[in-house]
Amino acid sequence: MTTLSLTVNGRQVSTEIDPRLNLADFLRERLSLKGTHLGCEHGACGACTVLMDGMPIRSCITMAASCDGVEITTVEGYDDNKLMSRLRRAFREEHALQCGYCTPGMLATAYDIVSRLDRADENEIRAALAGCVCRCTGYRGIVRAIERCIAEKNA
């Protein structure tokens, strides 16, 4: 066992963990935050993407024990964050989700894209989304939702 102290969704967590746990399993199994989904467990599909200190990372290939002292935000943790609210509305209105499995990772990625890039055309958004697989939507709605939120940011 190893000791882990971190902040998850604004809440301080200190606990003993099995050091082999990855961050996704820690969030899901130990904190019951089931919104972080596992799609490949080798960092390639993006479903498990969460924010670590404000930056998107793959929770499936991040050891939980490496997260000492960091701040994690999962899909459950945005409360009434303005940008996330706008993204959620845009995702719904642009039909950017179907089965919903990739959605938490897509939102974390979209949040980073909109926060980081003040200007991005369709191709840049598509390139920035390349690490996230959606098997249902064909991506059009996702790209449009992000385009819209970038435009709103500059409005």
């Binding site: 670590m52 930056m55 990372i57 920035a128």
Partner: peptide, 9 residues
Amino acid sequence: IAYRAIRNR
């Protein structure tokens, strides 16, 4: 290299 989320780590 790979994707932004990978590049962050």
